[in-house]
Amino acid sequence: MAFFIHKKEKHIVQKIKEHADAVVETVYLVNDALNLLLEGKKQESKEATKKVHKREHEADIIQREIDTEMFGGAFMPSLREGLFITVDTVDKVANRAEKLGDFMTLIEPDIPQEIREDVRQMGEVTCRCAEKLRDAIYNLFDNKKDVQEDTVEIERYEALVDKLAWRVLETVFKKLDIEKFSHRMALREMVIHLSSISNKMEDAADRIDIIGLRLKS
């Protein structure tokens, strides 16, 4: 019985890591779509967004498998609950990436030259943040001592994205001469979608921190 549970838990850990991989890849794919949009390649950006959808869907399937297997009684109940919530929060990162992709596909906002570098940087930092999220999840199961270091980094990257978002919005609303207000609002919405990805990663980092604290003696 104990051996069976041990094996099952190992399998769930593998699935949680796979889920993290899928979510991080979703973030990378939406960043690709964003970069294509920044280069003015709208059609290619749409194609890239389809890949985001596909990977996000795969992440959903893995999440369901994790939930079903954990519900069967793996791990300490308190830890099980923490892992349920964490995986769910991590999955929301992929959902946010998908939303950004949808927005870019449907609205196709023209991105003024003046803000392109900052938006590109936002995407870049979001990817780095996603990498750290993956590290934190892996380290929960490999080397829990490093988890806190990872979550601190996630918070740092999230703050950086927020700072860049603020600068972009300030430029859009105060410095740029954009004719239509709806255009400004579309740019604002895109920036909010983009920054919400790292916000969700910060939420996931908080959940991971809580698990880390629970393990303390």
């Binding site: 041990h6 838990e9 190992k10 850990v13 791990f75 300490m76 830890l79 892992l83 929960l140 199961f141 490999d142 080397n143 829990k144 001592k145 698990i211 393990l215 303390k216 003696s217």
Partner: peptide, 17 residues
């Protein structure tokens, strides 16, 4: 055991077990 537990148990799965 507290400090031993914290330094030696390096991952969540082992902790749970």
């Amino acid at each position: 055991l507290g400090s031993l537990f914290e330094t030696r148990v390096s991952n969540v799965r082992i902790w749970s077990l």
